[in-house]
Design a protein around this nucleic acid. Structure first.
Lengths: 129, 129
DNA sequence: AAATTAATGCAACTCAGTTGCAAAAATAAG
DNA sequence: CTTATTTTTGCAACTGAGTTGCATTAATTT
């Protein structure tokens, strides 16, 4: 278990993910919450929330780390076999990432044990067209 | 067009991708070729090769940039609609990334124009089990 | 062979993410 | 409620992948 104590920093951070359905950059979180808590704290809490499978993360276009709320799309136990995942879409022009409202099935092709899977689709979003 | 001139640095770099079917980290390339050419050169050539759709890149587990040979899985023209992609598998234990030998179809769900798509499946590979 | 343009090396830089340590806050024990 | 224990936080310094500017060198054009 990653999270042990309920602190105000934790609550503040969690709120950001309730307000927003799309994914958020750590950099963005730091600039939004940087005056309320230290950036190290933000990084550490995000780490723990991912350990607990409350959030999941991936790296977008420029190597920036993105976090999104996790709802069954990944599993903390590496032994489990996942077979579904949700694609994210990143606009290469404005950089924004949203989760698409589809559930995809993972191909049953690997002998490997799968714990996370992420499909990042990149292109140009509607508003940038 | 990214690449304009045939230089020995370019050839040396391209050889690395002929020798290896799996994806390679830039960091790895720098440590392999760092005595033959400057790391800046490596970064710049990789950039150009991606512009020309000869290589494509994505970010793995620790935010490291990976490159792999591109064969129709991405397109330099952002206007085109892609409908297939190839998943990569990264072992969370040893970090290695290989391309899986399947071709997947992209869900026809977005109004957006798609230029790149990458599915990164993560778990434990056979040799780490 | 000379002129042009692109590629390279080098050194210094940027900035996302990390680490160690002391102080503060949260929970547990008495 | 008070004290002891353990986790969390802030701060400052650090790490390292990736970038930038500029002078030099190499490839291509004329």
């Amino acid at each position: 278990m990653g999270i042990h104590r309920k602190t105000s920093s934790l609550n503040t951070l969690l709120k950001e993910f309730n307000n927003d359905i799309s994914a958020i950059t750590v950099v963005d979180l730091v600039s939004r919450l940087g005056d309320k808590m230290n950036k190290t704290t933000i990084y550490r809490i995000l780490n723990k929330l991912e350990e607990d499978s409350i959030l999941h993360s991936f790296f977008g276009k420029n190597g920036l780390k993105w976090y999104a709320k996790c709802d069954g799309c990944c599993n903390s136990k590496p032994e489990s076999i996942l077979n579904k995942f949700r694609p994210h879409f990143q606009c290469l022009s404005c950089g924004k990432i949203d989760r698409l409202n589809i559930e995809m099935k993972l191909p049953k092709v690997t002998d490997q044990k799968v714990s996370v899977s992420q499909l990042l689709i990149q292109g140009r979003c509607e508003s940038c067209n």
